[in-house]
Design a binder for these strands. Sequence first.
DNA 1: CGAGAGTCCTGAAGGC
DNA 2: TGCCTTCAGGACTCTC
Length: 275
Amino acid sequence: MPELPEVETTRLGLLPAVCGQRIEHVIVRESRLRWPVPEDFALKLSGMTIDNLSRRGKYLLWHCHERRRDGILLSHLGMSGALSCTNPLTAPGKHDHIDIVLHNGTAIRYTDPRRFGAMLWIDGKAAQHPLLDKLGLEPLSEAFSGTYLYAQSRTRRVSVKEFIMNGQVVVGVGNIYASESLHLAGINPTLPVGRLSRARCQRLCDAIRTTLQAALNAGGSTLRNYVNADGAPGWFQLSAQVYDRAGEACRRCEGTVRMVTQGQRSTFFCPRCQR
DNA sequence: CGAGAGTCCTGAAGGC
DNA sequence: TGCCTTCAGGACTCTC
């Protein structure tokens, strides 16, 4: 499932293929995504030139313009979505919901078996949208620090794991990387976040950075059907320290990895070296 | 406002 | 073999 590193990998893969390209037409085969694809979606996109592809959290922002019209295509991969470059003549599969056909003859194909993803259109130049307005800090930005985590968490009673997965605090830390980051930081995921010391918040911040950066360097991770923009599967999960390893030996100490449920999500951790 | 539960969806996995 | 049930998971949305 795409987490921030996968989304960034997708962005980097698509960037050279779409930048400066005019959109010839758009085919919407299935409009029932996370939110219904608007009726006029294809119409709004047609004729637009893609100027840039940026990312905010796990959202991709396709900045477009026409003669006297600007807009942003906002896309999200949900948990099973993928964007790939393809020949538009290639027969679409069962879950190939949208094709964005470019002037150069290639198509950006959006595939998403579970349809948790999204494709929306924002009129105008400003990246203002209810979905973007309340997002927390980018984990790889300067502003994201131990001090920030400490300050934001003082009054909160949720567990540290649920806290770092809250997109209004920090974006892009999904279920896999939350477990991995906490393991690296040596912090028990069930601790109430409001009780973490300054020093531990700093360790956690560093661990989140390190974990996401490592995944980014590796080209994104994958579970089951994730495919990046070049069609190559990632491999980060092969080096997971705790995720999906319940009952197995901790890779850092003599402990055994345990699974617990937090906020209806599974968490993996080593009770021996995460306290 | 914060916390917790509910919701969308389909493929994989397990039980019988 | 095949049907049925359960579960996972991002993140918005609702309820308390």
